[in-house]
Design a protein around this nucleic acid. Structure first.
Length: 460
RNA sequence: GGCCGGAUGGCAGAGUGGCUAUGCAGAGGACUGCAAAUCCUCGUACCCGAGUUCGAUUCUCGGUUCGGCCUCCA
């Protein structure tokens, strides 16, 4: 199965050919750990988790290296720590732990490597020194800046020229800059700010250099795929390219650049001023994480996604349909196929909406399957496809008993008791009583299914 | 102003130069003590205009419109 991926560099889908199929390397820009991750932060995590899963399937689990950094030094962190009255390490460790838990709830695997910026300052300083030595950067007033004029094809990823950018007139013109487009590699720290000793005085790294230094250390100077949000194309990734290519004597840096689209909320841009920022940590208390993952993957990763209550509801309904089918064949051992049917959809630039459609067709096939043999095959087809997407790994009984945190109403034992009472009433052919109990349960959000094997229930 | 990406049925969302996904919602039927679930059937959607073509929702050009980025941003 050939894999094609849309490459921001070429602006088209290209056949993916790894540099080394025994060591396929992926780098994704990870979180700046100063507060809870919002749904927009979660999108690249879910999208590139999906890519990671696909690459592992195609090249083998041991042959894929996925690095996603933790940015644990940044001015936003400094400000947040000060505001909280806690030290930076406490803040970043706490936030990182929450990030891990939240992303795990979205069924995201841990990356192979999770480098932290503060553990790589030495590498950043070395790379900056290299850039100065090769004439691509200069020191001025305690800062070190990259000189964009020294790189011939600066702007090739975002396809913009220096002139175009100056027309935007939002470029900060600092006195120590030789040209307005030059960007900071190193900046000085005041005594009350965190800092590291360097040849240019005590200071801290600029935003872009950490990814160049960390990818170099863990993935080498030239690797396969680099991902992140579409807003990172410029300046972050453009500058990363400039730093890495120039520090490595002009050799190629990344073959495929991939960018996910933005998340909107109920048709509006998500922003603090509108007050519609959705925090993953809150969402996972109100909805099963698997449903949130389904919702996130229900739009193609390059398109903007409008995150709505309706979308989450539909995602939950889709998974209910899957788990309903699986519940009916819970006792049948699946016959797992070698190649999941969703592989073709995923191999076409991660077409997850099409993959979900395939899952639905597999559910229909499972529902229609007659006899244990056919059911075992249909179940295996569904599970194999779902596994590649990070879905349907729960016990259906657990899925259908899920309830939001702090939910009022009947707990599992209370429901079981009422259901048992109704079963007795039905056996006694007291349908008035049975229907009264059904009504009571329906009002409590419990849906009953009287089947040949007895009565089962689920939460709506 | 520059660069980039969209516009598909009630909703979400794929895809294709002719055979018009998938799910939800809706209509009808089978099944059912009631119900739920399931299965079957149904609704003939592709922003506008011109061009290319035997044929365009799909390709080309123009337009309308929505959105993103232009050194804080996933």
């Amino acid at each position: 199965m050939s894999l094609s991926l849309y490459n921001t560099l070429t602006r088209r889908k290209d056949l993916f050919q790894p540099i080394d199929p025994d060591r396929v390397r992926l780098y994704v820009c990870g979180p700046t750990v100063y507060s809870y991750a919002h749904i927009g932060n979660a999108r690249p995590v879910v999208v590139f988790d999906q890519l990671f899963r696909l690459l592992r399937h195609v090249y083998g689990e041991e042959h894929v290296v996925y690095a996603r950094n933790i940015t644990d030094i940044d001015d936003k962190i400094i400000d947040a720590a000060r505001a909280n009255g806690e030290d930076i390490a406490t803040l970043t460790e706490r936030t990182t732990a929450t990030f891990h838990a939240d992303m795990a709830a979205l069924h995201c695997l841990l990356p192979t490597i999770e480098p932290r910026a503060t553990a790589h300052v030495g590498g950043m300083i070395a790379m900056i020194a290299q850039l100065i030595a090769s004439g691509h950067a200069y020191a001025a007033e305690g800062h070190v800046l990259f000189s964009v004029a020294k790189m011939a094809d600066y702007g090739s990823l975002s396809r913009r020229s220096q002139d175009d950018m100056l027309a935007g007139a939002r470029v900060e013109v600092a006195p120590y800059k030789q040209a307005p487009g030059d960007f900071v590699l190193w900046k000085p720290s005041s005594p009350d700010q965190p800092g590291w000793d360097s040849p240019w005085g005590r200071g801290r790294p600029g935003w872009h250099i950490e990814c160049s230094a960390m990818s170099e250390q863990h993935l080498g100077t030239h690797f396969d795929i680099h991902g992140g949000g579409i807003d990172l194309i410029f300046p972050h990734h453009e500058n990363e390219i400039a730093q890495s290519v120039c520090a490595h004597g002009g050799e190629p840096f990344v073959n495929v650049w991939m960018h996910n689209g933005f998340v909107e909320v109920e048709g509006e841009k998500m922003s603090k001023s509108i007050g519609n920022v959705l925090i993953v940590h809150d969402l996972i208390r109100q909805h099963p994480g698997e449903a949130l993952r389904w919702a996130m993957l229900s739009a193609h990763y390059r398109d903007p996604i409008d995150w709505t209550a309706e979308r989450v509801k539909q995602a939950k309904a889709s998974l209910d349909r899957c788990y309903t089918a699986l519940r009916a064949v819970a006792d049948i051992a699946p016959v797992v196929p070698e190649t999941p049917a969703v592989l073709a959809a995923l191999s076409d630039d991660l077409n997850t909406p099409l993959a979900q459609a395939v899952l639905h067709e597999q559910v229909t096939a499972l529902n229609k399957a007659k006899g244990e043999q056919d059911q075992a095959v249909a179940k295996g087809e569904l599970l194999a496809s779902a596994a590649l997407l990070g879905f349907l790994d729960a016990d259906p009984e657990v899925w259908f008993r899920w309830r939001p945190e702090g939910a009022q109403g009947l707990d599992d034992a209370a429901v079981d008791a009422l259901v048992a009472a109704r079963v007795e009433a039905r056996l006694a052919r007291d349908f008035t009583q049975a229907d009264r109990l059904r009504r009571e349960l329906t009002e409590a959000g419990i849906i009953l299914d009287d089947g040949p094997q007895g009565t089962i229930w689920r939460r709506a």
